[in-house]
Design a protein around this nucleic acid. Sequence first.
DNA 1: CGCTGGTATATGGTATACCAGATGACACTA
DNA 2: TAGTGTCATCTGGTATACCATATACCAGCG
Lengths: 228, 228
Amino acid sequence: MSANRLSLEPIGESQSLKARAYKALKAAITQMNIYDSKVELRLDERDLSAKFGISRTPLREALAQLDQEGLVRVVARRGIFIVRKTKEEITEMITVWAALESMAARLACKVAGDEEIAALHDLVDDFSQDAVARRMGEYSDANITFHQAIIGLGKNQLISDITDGLFVHVRAIRNRAIFEDDRAKRSIGDHKVIIEALEARDGERAGKLVCDHTMRLRDHVERYVDIE
Amino acid sequence: MSANRLSLEPIGESQSLKARAYKALKAAITQMNIYDSKVELRLDERDLSAKFGISRTPLREALAQLDQEGLVRVVARRGIFIVRKTKEEITEMITVWAALESMAARLACKVAGDEEIAALHDLVDDFSQDAVARRMGEYSDANITFHQAIIGLGKNQLISDITDGLFVHVRAIRNRAIFEDDRAKRSIGDHKVIIEALEARDGERAGKLVCDHTMRLRDHVERYVDIE
DNA sequence: CGCTGGTATATGGTATACCAGATGACACTA
DNA sequence: TAGTGTCATCTGGTATACCATATACCAGCG
């Protein structure tokens, strides 16, 4: 059947230059291994505005936003510096993450659908046993995906937003984390137990398992990861 | 004894106009009862810049920051609007608060000094029994002070920062919350039990008590507070 | 009277110019 | 040589002018 009337989509308004500059900068910063070697940690407003082909004004606003998020520090008359988080800041972030994901797991037991919880299996089974042998970076990403999935099941948008902000930073040091075979295997075991608790709708237990699991990562980072 | 050498403080450099505008705006917004009546929810960049005696540029950066924090929404070619949080957003914030304060309580059992925990008594005893009769606004402030104190004992700067941001919003609806005598008395009872758990260094128990206590507030708000 | 389309105005977005303080090179002095 | 003053220059902060569009108002037409 042919359309007998025009059905038009609203024109997708192109984002503001500020928004685009923000995304571009954030992508660029999060992709570089700022904890490696001697990468240039200094940015220049004029350089960047020239490279992006926009004026300093929207670029400055994007930088101000990144500054507030803690990815960058803007110092008057000195420069703009990409921030390297201290180990203490990283462990604090993981602690907050533990608290929020734990709460999300509790909530999930109340509000998540059976099929949503069941879908978690797919995120774990892919990495059962042998798959652990793959390079750790890949495992780490899948690991984060699993945790984000749990957080999503809690259906608390604020928790999702806050943890998203944290993942950006935590992810930046994942290459520094020593994810030895041992940890990866144990991690997968933990994940399976967490799913069981969720399926049993045991919020108390699921929350505790998630919290302990993530706090072990925190302790691991504190003990074995060397930043600077 | 007289000083035998000059000890000079660094000259407190006057903050940037952006920072000052930010503080002024934030104070102004948080002080007004945005959930009452028909207060003007619209702001105008040019008006504000004129009133503050600064140009639009630093003012815009301050507004952008408030926008990111969720106090304000800047819409292109439409205006700047003071945000009224929905009830769902408020309850989500209280949930996050519960998760973080609970974690802070657990941490406090490990890292807080005995005298620090003991100091909590002062924040509760002031409001024992009769004091509850005071007007609820005052109680509410003291209540928040108590919870902030616990969070402080956890010595996790990030938790403190995030919850500080949340308190701004939650505080805005405190006048809408029905803090009947009953709740206030029970609340004080809860607080005393929480202190006991902290003194016993029972992190598990302290965390659970704090979480349950705050989640009860969440449920209360969800059931009895009417926004819009 | 009511709908339609043009148009003035309001308002946030962007570009540009200038300002002030921080830095470092360098010459000068003791 | 070490310390000091000067100055060019770099860099983020601020002011201002202009741009693009959402909105409201109004004239014109039926």
